[in-house]
Simulated assay, not measured.
Amino acid sequence: MDLSQDLLDRLFAEALRARAFAHAPYSRYQVGVAILDEQGRIHIGANMENAAYPQGWCAEPSALTAMIMAGGKQAKVAVVTGPGPDIISPCGGCRQKLREFSVPEELVIIAGDPGGMRQRWTLAELLPHSFGPSHLNF
């Protein structure tokens, strides 16, 4: 997939915008995600904490749900933004959720914060030797 700088900038801006919707009164660690699907559409999500731990959820499943509800089938790019200065990456559970709706060698994950885009990986790099739908022979 050709990732033009314009497209990357749009995804990054949407991921930062999504952070404003985060509900993080306990950790105060707001996360926003923008996912580009196979149709070229952008879907955003934010983390939602809950006083009844661990009932909250991360930003990545929020964006994946938006993608699925809009008819998307496959995540192609995921831009994950946090507050900085440390580089954020999807947690283990979110890596597995992203795996369900992507080709690990093709899904590009970009980490950023208000200061800019910081790091880039494929899901295969973040989740090597992953377990996925093909293992279940469906």
Rank of each mutant, 00 (worst) to 15 (best):
D2Y: 03
L3H: 12
S4T: 15
S4W: 00
Q5M: 01
Q5H: 01
D6N: 01
L8W: 04
D9Q: 07
A13Q: 15
A13K: 10
A15H: 11
A15W: 02
A15L: 11
L16S: 06
R17K: 14
A18Y: 12
A20S: 12
A20D: 14
F21N: 12
A22D: 04
A24W: 04
P25L: 07
Y26K: 04
S27V: 05
R28P: 00
R28K: 15
G32N: 09
V33I: 14
A34W: 07
R41G: 02
R41V: 00
I42N: 08
I42E: 07
I42H: 04
H43Y: 05
H43S: 07
H43W: 08
A46Q: 14
A46L: 10
E49Q: 12
N50F: 00
A51N: 03
A52T: 13
A52E: 11
Y53I: 05
P54C: 11
P54M: 06
G56H: 13
C58K: 05
A59T: 11
A59K: 06
A59D: 14
P61S: 06
P61I: 03
P61L: 10
L64I: 15
T65L: 09
T65Q: 08
T65C: 11
M67R: 03
M67K: 04
M67F: 03
A75T: 12
K76M: 13
V77H: 10
A78P: 12
V79N: 10
V79H: 15
V80K: 07
T81G: 10
T81P: 10
P83M: 15
G84L: 02
I87G: 00
S89A: 09
P90L: 03
G92Y: 08
C94R: 04
R95E: 05
Q96A: 13
K97G: 06
R99L: 11
R99G: 01
E100M: 01
E100C: 01
F101W: 07
S102V: 07
E105P: 05
V108A: 13
V108N: 03
I109L: 13
I109M: 14
I109G: 04
A111F: 07
G112A: 06
G112W: 07
P114T: 11
P114F: 06
P114N: 08
G115L: 10
M117D: 02
M117Q: 15
R118A: 08
Q119W: 08
Q119M: 09
R120W: 06
W121A: 09
W121C: 03
W121S: 13
L123I: 08
E125T: 06
L126Q: 15
L126S: 11
L127C: 12
L127Y: 14
P128L: 12
P128N: 09
P128W: 14
H129K: 14
H129M: 02
S130M: 01
F131Q: 09
P133I: 02
H135Q: 05
L136P: 01
L136S: 02
L136I: 05
L136M: 03
N137W: 05
N137C: 00
F138Q: 00
F138G: 00
